[in-house]
Amino acid sequence: MRTLVRPAVLRTPRGRFVYWSLLVLALVLFTVAFILPLYWMVTGGLKSSAEVARNPPTYIPEEWHPGNYADTWDRLELARYFGNTVVLIGGAWLLGLAIQLPAAYALSKLRPRFGRVVLGMMLLTLMVPATALLIPTYLTVTDVPFLGLNLVNNPAAVWLPAAANAFNIYVLKNFFDQIPGEILDAARIDGAGALATMWRVILPLSRPIIAVVSILSITALWRDFLWPMVVLPDPAKQPITVYFQRIADTTSLNMLIAGMVLASIPLVVVFLVFQRHILAGLTAGSLKG
């Protein structure tokens, strides 16, 4: 087995010392790189407005103001914009799964005619920069083809583009390809149709990858700023990311930082709750017999 360090070197005291020293140093540097911005953000919300703007900055708050978070929640009316964000993300996530799962199942197991062509065209959209698609997508939601609907200031303007995610379909299809065809044949022998097979066989086996796709979708939607700002000009319907940008010039810096910390908590909680499924999905490549 080829490794970066020869086993003979690791058996010497000097080799072990150098190896473990570099490993610990690398782990410490990576930990600091990830933890320091979080620490800076959380402590920034605990400082006074004058202390946040001080130069040079203080690394530990001279005066602790934990009440900043409660004041930020009440004064900035974050509950309303959290609600807007949940509606946008929840609708886009559910609609996305309703479209992406059957599409991936059809391309993987039903093998329709011209399925490879359809998959290739979907993957081709991944090569196009998102900004290049901004104007065509906006023109589409302002005048939906065949329906003539204007979806501006409607949550569907966020739901529909987010549901058409070629990357998620490709990831799901690759996972479905690993499921043995014998399992589907057994379901067909028992009288299950294509829809019943997907619902009763495919989806229960696909929980890890569904969790991965869900987390990726929710994270991307929660951080999205440009598209909601364009299609939701009404301030009362905007998500929390657009709301923070709109009030940035009129809000004290410490309250703005505290609001950003509060806006980050749901994503952290979702990751901690579903991390087991995420790790299982990332390492999924085969099925146990």
Rank of each mutant, 00 (worst) to 15 (best):
L160V: 15
A163Y: 11
A163V: 10
A164N: 06
A164L: 13
A164M: 13
N165P: 10
A166F: 09
I169Y: 11
I169A: 10
Y170I: 01
Y170N: 01
V171L: 15
V171D: 08
K173V: 05
K173F: 03
N174G: 13
F176A: 00
F176K: 00
F176N: 00
D177F: 00
D177N: 12
Q178L: 08
P180F: 10
P180Q: 12
P180G: 04
I183Q: 12
L184G: 01
D185C: 00
A186I: 07
A186W: 08
A186V: 14
A187N: 04
A187V: 06
A187G: 06
R188L: 00
I189Q: 04
I189G: 04
I189C: 02
G191C: 11
A192T: 03
A192H: 10
G193P: 04
A194V: 11
A194P: 10
A194M: 09
L195Y: 13
L195D: 07
L195V: 15
A196G: 09
A196S: 13
T197S: 15
T197R: 04
R200K: 13
R200P: 01
I209W: 02
A211P: 10
A211D: 10
V212W: 06
V213T: 15
V213G: 08
V213I: 12
V213H: 13
S214K: 11
S214P: 03
I215K: 03
I218G: 00
A220R: 11
W222Q: 00
W222S: 00
D224M: 02
F225Y: 15
L226N: 14
P228R: 11
M229A: 15
M229F: 13
V230C: 03
V231P: 04
V231M: 03
L232S: 11
L232V: 12
P233C: 12
P233M: 12
D234H: 03
D234F: 05
P235D: 13
P235S: 14
P235C: 13
K237P: 00
K237N: 07
Q238A: 14
Q238N: 08
P239D: 05
T241P: 09
V242R: 06
Y243D: 10
Q245K: 11
Q245T: 10
I247E: 14
A248S: 15
A248R: 14
D249Y: 10
T251S: 14
S252K: 08
S252I: 07
M255P: 03
L256G: 12
L256N: 11
G259L: 02
V261E: 01
L262Y: 02
L262R: 08
S264V: 07
I265C: 02
I265K: 05
P266F: 03
L267E: 01
L267D: 02
L267C: 06
V268G: 06
V268E: 02
V269H: 02
V269S: 05
V270D: 01
V270N: 01
V273L: 14
V273Q: 05
F274K: 05
F274Q: 06
Q275P: 04
H277S: 12
H277E: 15
I278M: 13
A280P: 01
A280L: 08
A280Y: 01
G281T: 07
G281H: 10
